[in-house]
Design a protein around this nucleic acid. Sequence first.
RNA 1: GUGAUUGUAGCUCAGUUGGUUAGAGCGCCGGUUUGUGGUACCGGAGGUCGCGGGUUCGAGCCCCGUCCUUCACCCCA
Length: 457
Amino acid sequence: MIKPSLAKGTRDFGPLEMKKRKFIFSTIENIFKLHGFECIETPAMENITTLTGKYGEEGDKLLFKILDSGDYWGNAEKSLLPNDIIDSHKLTPLIASKGLKYDLTVPFARFVSMHRNSITFPFKRYQMQPVWRADRPQKGRYREFWQCDADCIGSKDMSNEAELIVIFDSVFRALGIQSHQIHLNNRKILEGISTLLFPHVSFITFTTILDKYDKIGWEGISKEFGENGIGELELKGLSKFLVQEPLTEDLLNDWKAHLQSNPLAFMGLQEIEEVFNLIKTTKSCTQVVFDGTLARGLSYYTGCIFEVKIKESGLGSVAAGGRYDNLTEIFGLKDVSGVGISFGADRIFDYLENQNLYPKNIVESTKVLVCALDPESMPFAFELGMELRNNKIETVLYPGITKLKKQLDFANANQYKLVVLMGENERKENLYTLKNMETGTQTKANLQELIQSIQLS
RNA sequence: GUGAUUGUAGCUCAGUUGGUUAGAGCGCCGGUUUGUGGUACCGGAGGUCGCGGGUUCGAGCCCCGUCCUUCACCCCA
């Protein structure tokens, strides 16, 4: 006997949990569809060359690799392996040519590049699938989790960004959440500031340190910048950019003054202004925070970047996204800019579980249980089941004849509110007994009356 | 990948300085009730104490390893 167990960082979902998850997925999907995004799917596994080098050094380490089939060691190009050095990192490329996808954006870029001739640009697609990361699990972090992505590729227009912000807001509101904040920044601003203030520090180093501001504060990041050779004087210039404030006209004007002398940063700010002008009359705008410290780790972003946080959740970001100008270029498709967002379904699920924010009707069962009380009644019960289903009533026929107590226990355990009894008495009278499990009342009815009272309750 | 942390019945947890046959509550199954549940009463089943090694006359308890859980770092949804 093997002790049943789950692989690290994965989880099972029972019927009740699945109802809640489906509620999340369908809420997101409906809003994606409402905005005209088309659904696609890509495989769980990709060629490893598709995946590596897209997520930065850390990302590559977190890729799940799939061992080649057959005699993978015999077929391996061992000449590429340094003699008697056993280094797993050098070994894996020789024996693993596929990997599980790490996100939905890179496979999408591959998809777009491959199918460029049959795609009409701008192309809006959504995708809701699991992704895998070989991370150490912790709070809000799993090795398998679902992302729900919407991207628009082949358009540089800022209305895409504006629409995606509205989608962020619509989804969280539809899920019954109000305390979400949509953080917004632009990589061009960061790049401009970085080259202006810290020309001797790489942009990647700059963003990774800056991104930690939320967690470790001013002291923490000034210490880390210090370790990278940045003095206190230079740091002072940075401090005025570390704001997290509601996005307003005044704020933008303020920043324009700061960034006037910096063409790249100024361009980034103009993009944000364009987005602001489109959303400023929507209620979504009230949830938007201009966040000068938002940087995003993924290296492919080039314009606006987003991150949605629920303050009291303790979960990090529950959704994120941004614009990428060069992602399809690696797959041979140049000058196609895209922008997209991703909802972290598992973190949203955890938050809703915690807060128990689900609408009541998604957890309640609307099913009816039909109980046959003796073998002769079974054909009648079976037929009744068919009749009820023909009338769009979700019906479960209790399989077999057992004590009524057991059948009623079954109804309680599954929270069925209505039970129909079919026994000798009912056969003789040509009626059905309808029992309400909450009130305990029982009534007799013919088929038409039965269907009616079920539909009314 | 680094550093902590956890594991005893289906679930939540007790278990004394190492000492006979490892307990409770809830749940589950059966009965009180052969056509009436969610309450009550009575009875019952269920454990390789995560796994492997070690110390000991003796290990659920001590030591080592390993896996899983949870958490922080790194990074991220």
